[in-house]
Design a binder for these strands. Structure first.
Length: 497
DNA sequence: TTTTGAGTTGTTCGA
DNA sequence: GTCGAACAACTCAAA
């Protein structure tokens, strides 16, 4: 008797190598039907944003091409997922579905419902490990709870059994007797306006092949100097693997293995330290996902409850200036424009931009999280949540309340020649590095010869940082005392320059 | 149960 | 220019 087909339900694991769901389906011995169901409304309120959709379009095409090279293909359907998968089960006679776990609260809940519905039809659902190094349940404190502090978390990870070797991509996938109908990728309407897409296309190659090429390059070039260069937005010192990791075009175990192997090869202490610094970032990704799995409410609400009553300001004008990269602080504006053009922002720039929104403008981190969510090609609910709550000080680590980034100092330290600012803020491209991070303090003749007229060609600062800093400290102090700030003034806007 | 040491990424001020 | 101290108190994790 022949083994009935198995569906592989792809979501954020758009690869064939190191894919436990694919391996599980192949291991069953019958035909394999790869399927993707487009049901963004089921992920609300965090349905994929515009940049993510662009990426997804190309990643699905790449996956389909890779499958076709192996005698298979990707079957694409629209949601609702429960009905879509149910129909496919009937059409193919599948008796099993394999799928990788995800931690996003809405998705995890949906997956539970879909699994239950499939099981009621007599279909076996095999939920395999997700795109993580360690299962969230596997990393616990001595008392059995989840970690809330990174360093002990990462130590516990390193003490745990090392992530196992990644299974290779199957050479062939056995096709069903006949292929069910499928939408084409372009039928999903994922692509944005042409001008936005051009900027994204110039920077990225979505798909497992692009991810593998980038991993190869970053292991040989980036890891060596990672510790020194990763904090410099003006240099290409980071791996830029984040979108590939988000969509699962490369698995964290593959990255881990490649970096470890490289460090072992290099051998010297410097190589090991660089590799450790790099893997530590993978640890942060891990930490973010474990936190979201354990504290699902944090996608919308602060982990530290006291911040529920934080006196956030409401200022649509300030928000618009931040979004458009017109705050008058070149380091912030460069960051925001890089985000819009590339669908990506350097990690240091993310901190500067986020600190400015939350501390200088006193706008809620959720506003920032939403904008990043729509514009980042690597938008990932766990990472985005952790990053924004860290910036706002309401997240897992006990960030000192006085840690408020000064956009001028940060620019001078991490973009010393102003190359980053010159690249992304053309209005100040000819302002010398000495003044490029604070054009409002530059001598008149300097601005004039650089073609800058403040308030005309480039905005004056929307807030005075020193005053904004005082306001933020006052707001934080009011929080610690558990009382509202005096009057409504604290929620107002500090004076403009 | 209590105690103890520590906590990704900073800034400012004054000596 | 460089350097160290101050900037709160709290929570976490382990002993």
């Amino acid at each position: 008797m022949s083994v009935p087909p198995t569906l592989v339900w792809f979501r954020l694991d758009l690869r064939l190598g190191d894919n436990p769901a694919v391996a599980a389906a192949v291991a069953r011995g019958g035909p394999v039907v790869p399927v993707f169901v487009w049901a963004p409304e089921e992920e609300a309120p965090w349905e994929p944003g515009a940049a993510s959709r662009w990426w997804l379009h190309h990643s699905l095409e790449a996956l389909d091409a890779a499958l076709r090279r192996r005698g298979s293909r990707l079957v694409i359907r629209r949601g609702p997922t429960e009905a879509g998968l149910g129909r496919l089960v009937e059409e193919t006679g599948a008796r099993a579905v394999t799928v990788a776990e995800r931690v996003e609260p809405a998705v995890a809940a949906r997956d539970g419902r879909v699994s239950a519905a499939l099981r009621r039809r007599g279909v076996e659902v095999e939920r395999t490990a997700g795109n993580l190094l360690f299962a969230p349940d596997a990393i616990r404190t001595r008392s059995g709870g989840p970690f809330r502090v990174f360093t002990p978390f990462w130590k516990a990870c390193q003490a745990a059994p090392a992530p196992s070797e990644a299974p290779e991509a199957p050479r062939r996938l056995r096709a069903p007797e006949s292929w069910p109908d499928s939408l084409r990728v372009r039928d999903l309407g994922l692509l944005p306006a042409a001008d936005r897409a051009a900027g994204l296309r110039a920077d990225w190659t979505p798909g497992e092949g692009g991810a593998a090429a980038l991993l190869g390059r970053c292991v040989s070039e980036i890891v060596c100097a990672y510790a020194d260069r990763r904090d410099r937005p003006d240099l290409e010192g980071t791996s830029r693997l984040s979108p590939h990791l988000h969509f699962g075009e490369v698995g964290p175990r593959q990255v881990w293995t490649a970096v470890e192997a490289h460090a072992a090869l290099g051998g010297d202490r410097g190589a090991r330290a660089a590799a450790a610094a790099f893997l530590r970032q993978l640890g942060w990704r891990e930490f973010a996902h474990h936190l979201l799995a354990h504290f699902p409410h944090t996608a919308e609400r602060p982990l530290r409850e006291v911040y529920e009553s934080f006196p956030w300001a409401r200022d649509r004008g300030a928000l618009a200036a931040w979004v458009r990269g017109r705050t008058g602080y070149p380091a912030v504006d460069a960051a925001m424009r890089e985000l819009w053009t590339r669908g990506w922002m350097h990690n240091r720039a993310r901190m500067i931009a986020a600190s400015f929104l939350v501390k200088d403008l006193l706008l809620t981190w959720l506003e920032g999280a939403r904008w990043f969510w729509d514009t980042l090609v690597d938008a990932d609910l766990a990472n985005n949540t952790l990053g924004w709550q860290w910036a706002a000080g309401c997240g897992a680590d006990a960030a000192p309340y006085f840690r408020i980034f000064n956009p001028v100092l940060q620019g001078a330290r991490f973009d010393p020649r102003a190359a980053y600012v010159h690249r992304w803020v053309p209005e100040v491209a000819r302002v010398p590095a000495e003044w490029a991070h604070r054009p409002w303090e530059a001598p008149g003749p300097v601005l004039e010869s650089a073609g800058v007229r403040l308030g005309k060609t480039y905005p004056r600062p929307v807030v005075d940082h020193a005053a904004a800093r005082e306001r933020a400290l006052a707001a934080l102090a009011s929080l610690e005392r558990g009382s509202a700030p005096r009057g409504r003034r604290a929620a107002g806007r500090p004076r403009e320059r």
